[in-house]
Amino acid sequence: MTNRSPFLISALAFGFAFLYVPILLLIVFSFNESKLVTVWGGFSFKWYGELFQDEQLLGAAKISLLIAAMSATLATLLGTMAGLIMARFGRFKGRTLFSGMITAPMVMPEVITGLAILLMFVVLEELTGWPDGRGITTITIAHTTFAMAYVTIVIQSRLSQMDDSVEEAAMDLGARPLKVFFLITLPIIAPALVSGWLLAFTLSLDDLVTTSFAAGPSSSTLPMVVFSSVRLGVTPKINALATIVVGLATLAIVMAGYIMHRQEQQRKRAMQRALAEQDAL
């Protein structure tokens, strides 16, 4: 055991407290009997029960999940194409400008992105009649716009790590470029596709600002409903909802970590076996 100074220990404690005390408080108060959020009235599951009877909240959650799934899929499709161009097209005139433009939505203030998208929809509707009002479709498009930038970065970095000669080898063995992409490139970058999709999904799920610009009257997402209900006063129901979300996220992370750890172990064992065999020869 190394000797750790009290300073380091307190720095560690303070850092973690800063990150997790608010979330812990939220979880604790989700089991609060009292209607007042800040006053402890005893332990109960009451608010969880009420949560599952709240049609408005449940409906909003459903819409949010639907939009998140659709926009994540679209963003992954578009992001893969953009990432592919960035990683494989080589040098071309305006490459820097192009890559800058892809990542710009990440640093653009969301209010501006949202406003611009709203303007586009309004103009488009006047000119072509589509989209007919704002709703799930427009929110999905708006989310795809900013999520795509993140997916592109994830895919591009994975592609540039990938050994180009693997694709060349496939071509050398007689596969045409399109086949090479589907048989070789895509399976190899699949993990990046999954993490890009999940990233886009979470970004869409908790977006409030851009959504507010693109949403219509019948398409309130979960963050919008939560935000508007909090303005009228926080109910412990929201705490219960948040606790469920935190619980699900934790579960997902633990599971992903476990699977990755097991794969790594298997890989190490296989590698050792191969090396032992080679030495035995």
Binding site: S165, A169, D172, R176, I184, I188
Partner: peptide, 27 residues
């Protein structure tokens, strides 16, 4: 390259990581 009667063995070997040895050879 995919229409030439030549094949290449790459310096990095360029094996397809997601395929078994048999699938690599069969490609």
């Amino acid at each position: 390259p995919y229409e030439r009667p030549v094949n290449m063995m790459f310096q990095s070997y360029a094996l397809f990581p997601h395929m078994t040895v048999e699938q690599n050879v069969a490609f």
